[in-house]
């Protein structure tokens, strides 16, 4: 397909750009576009679930996190220029060139070796999955069948990873444990237009998120993607109103309770007499809903941690400039 080739070339170009550009913000934007191209590309390769996940999580949320995290720390243009002209930099450029040659050689050898030796010996797992997933699990979407039933043991750790990642982020960014920050995060009132219109958007986003979650076993999508969409409501709310009327403590508790619920619910799979065909579908929907809520809570916490951190940095900067 020529279209896919165009996409692939664009991906390579964007990857090079995001590495070579000197300003971190611009590199991050390139990375976001790269992810978006990836997401569209997965559609051509018949992977709608993945495409949705990459678009929501990889392209949108990751870019937002990057931008918020590096906001206070990037170099000014003059700094970059002055560093660029120093003799040290020239040495570094020479090093880049040297490594570039090394990577080209080894990469060429590895890739040509790969295309020379690669072979297929059949797909036993594929054969099993596509024949029996409907009767086994009651799902109409094989991907959901795998991650909520066949390989649910992995999914539990995936949920745990999100939990731990958020715990780590909140811990490192020094979110005051168990409390809301006392002062209001923003002082400036924000644009009236943004506030009003984003108010209009909530129902759309909520509807879409719930649709993705509840229909996860029928159509592309599921708890993770839908949860991320729901989390974007929180993010939009921040941009619209700039006030943290959110109790992070409760969100964290909720997230942990949802996680426990997911573990408990997945344990039901171990009781075969319980899992008749009606209950199977119900179980899938319930799992998707729990995962969706958990992911929603988690990603919202993640985002607010970074936002809070950012305002704190600006605060201290302002204080040191004044003092």
């Amino acid at each position: 397909m020529p279209v896919t080739i165009v996409f692939l070339l664009a991906m390579v170009v964007l990857a090079v750009a995001s590495i070579q550009v000197r300003k971190a913000e611009i590199a991050v934007i390139y990375l976001g576009i790269f992810s978006l191209f990836n997401a569209i590309f997965y559609l051509f390769y018949s992977a709608p679930d993945l495409s949705l996940a990459e678009a929501v999580i990889g392209s949108a949320l990751a870019t937002a996190l990057f931008l918020v995290a590096i906001k206070g720390y990037t170099l000014r243009r003059t700094q970059i220029k002055s560093e660029y002209r120093s003799p040290k930099m020239r040495l570094a450029l020479f090093g880049e060139l040297f490594w570039g040659v090394v990577f080209l050689t080894i990469g060429f050898i590895v890739i040509s070796f790969y295309f020379g030796t690669v072979q297929d010996v059949g797909k036993p797992a594929w054969y099993h999955y596509v024949r029996s997933f409907i009767s086994d699990t009651g799902a109409r979407n094989a991907v959901t069948a795998i991650y909520l039933n066949y390989r649910v043991f992995d999914t539990l750790f995936e949920a745990l990873l999100l939990l731990v990642g958020i715990l780590a982020t909140a811990y490192f960014l020094e979110w005051p444990e168990g409390k809301e920050p006392e002062e209001e995060i923003a002082t400036k009132p924000d644009s009236e237009i943004v506030a009003r219109i984003s108010g209009l958007l909530y129902p759309f986003i909520l509807l879409y998120g719930f649709y993705i979650i509840v229909n996860g076993h029928l159509t592309p999508g599921g708890g993770f993607q839908g949860g991320a969409i729901l989390a974007s409501v929180f993010i939009i709310r921040y941009f619209a109103q700039r006030r943290l009327g959110i109790n992070i403590f409760i969100l964290q508790r909720l997230e942990k309770s949802f996680f426990l619920g997911i573990i408990a619910l997945s344990m039901l799979l171990l009781l075969p007499e319980f899992m008749n065909s009606d209950f199977k579908v119900f179980h899938l929907v319930l799992m998707n809903i729990l995962i969706g809520f958990k992911v929603c809570c988690g990603l919202a916490i993640l985002f607010f941690c970074f936002i809070f951190q950012q305002t704190k940095v600006e605060d201290t900067k302002g204080r040191s400039e004044r003092g």
Binding site: A47, D49, L50, L61, V143, I146, L161, G165, F224
Partner: peptide, 11 residues
């Protein structure tokens, strides 16, 4: 299914 996991891991 595995790569959805990988994306969540990535984020």
């Amino acid at each position: 299914a595995l790569m959805i996991t990988a994306i969540v891991i990535g984020i």
